[in-house]
């Protein structure tokens, strides 16, 4: 069973490598690059949501911390992006400890509200602390990444790089889930009391996984800053945190693969919807990008109500059902012959 995850990973790698070959237009490639940042953050978030059973509504803030740390330090002091990315990770870890330790000690969903409040505060600071963040105008001229002399300044180059990072992140997450620690996490999700009774320090695990997931987001943020080379507070608000949580839940929160599916689909959705505007018109509906929020709400609600294991769960039970039918028919055919 363990090995299946790694076979999927290989297939996933091949599929993603083919995407740029199929997409002629740089614009579509850039959509996929943006999807890769969401994907990375969602992989981390799914460990927290699906495995530790905790909701964070502040992960966009960690993306923001990564982005602003990289943006500020590279533009002000001309430090290497790799170093600033690392510093962003360290800051995210510190903040995750400060927010996570007190709220994860409590039962219930204090973490959700605490992270929501913390995300809102950071957003306000990003807008108001003009001296550091540039305020609503943001930071400009952030340098692109330099990979051993190869400057990642085109959409295609960045596509390969950022999806490689996603694949590595995915590999790490899969390793973790299929390890002693991962089993401990799944156990705590199954029954916290039973997990405690066999010696698992569940509160420490929750905190560790919250930190771990914050790191994923922080790296996604640094990558984002060096890709767009210009940042403002817009993409790091509460709504994006909620959207990340939605991606994980829609894809299927109890499997890492669910996060991959959910983040890819929902990142491409706005593109798909604006592409279909003409189609909506034939029904007399004037579709505007403003309606995206409503669509996300409808998708999240329908999935949570009708398909609680998400799209991944839906796919795999459909797959099992088909397999069973085929098997049964096979047997029938044999016995009748």
């Amino acid at each position: 069973m363990v090995i299946r995850d790694y076979i999927f990973l290989g297939i996933f790698l091949l599929v993603m490598a083919c995407v740029p070959l199929l997409l002629k237009n740089d614009y579509y490639i850039s959509i996929f690059v943006f999807a890769s940042f969401n994907c990375l953050a969602c992989i981390g978030l799914s460990l927290l949501l699906g495995y530790a059973g905790q909701i964070s509504l502040g992960h966009a803030a960690f993306i923001g911390i990564g982005a602003y740390t990289s943006g500020y330090l590279t533009t002000q002091f001309a430090w290497s992006p790799w170093i600033t990315m690392f510093i962003g990770v360290v800051i995210s870890i510190i903040i995750a400890i400060a927010v996570g330790v007190p709220s994860l000690k409590l039962r219930g969903h204090y973490l959700a509200m605490a992270t929501l409040g913390f995300g809102a505060i950071l957003y306000i600071v990003a807008v108001a602390a003009v001296d550091i963040t540039g305020g609503p105008a943001g930071l400009n001229n952030i340098p692109p990444l330099n990979l051993f002399g190869l400057i990642l300044d085109s959409d295609k180059k960045f596509f390969f790089f950022s999806w490689s990072v996603v694949v590595i992140g995915l590999l790490f997450a899969l390793n973790l889930i299929n390890s002693r620690v991962g089993r401990g996490l799944r156990a705590l999700h199954g029954s916290e009391d039973a997990a405690n009774s066999i010696g698992i320090n569940t509160s420490s695990y929750k905190i560790q996984i919250f930190i771990f997931s914050a790191v994923f987001s922080s790296i996604a943020g640094s990558l984002y800053a060096h890709y767009v080379t210009y940042i403002d507070p817009g993409p790091f608000g509460i709504m994006h945190s909620v959207l990340l949580m939605t991606m994980v839940a829609v894809g299927g929160m109890h499997k890492i693969w669910g996060a991959v599916i959910g983040s890819l689909l929902l990142s491409l959705l706005p593109e798909f919807l604006s592409f279909s505007t003409g189609y909506f018109k034939t029904f007399g509906i004037e579709y505007k990008p403003d309606y995206d929020t409503l669509v996300y709400g409808i998708i999240l609600l329908s999935i949570m109500l009708f398909l609680p294991e998400g799209l991944y769960g839906g796919f795999s039970s459909a797959f099992r059902a088909v397999k069973n039918i085929v098997k049964r028919n096979g047997k029938k055919a044999k016995s009748s012959s």
Binding site: F172, A173, N175, L176, S179, R180, V181, G182, R183, G184, R186, A187, A195, I198, G199, I200, Q208, I209, F212
Partner: peptide
């Protein structure tokens, strides 16, 4: 999972 206390690997090496 019951072997939790009889094994050691932490979050980093597991990753």
């Amino acid at each position: 999972v019951g072997r939790h206390l009889r094994s050691k690997s932490g979050i980093l090496s597991s990753t």
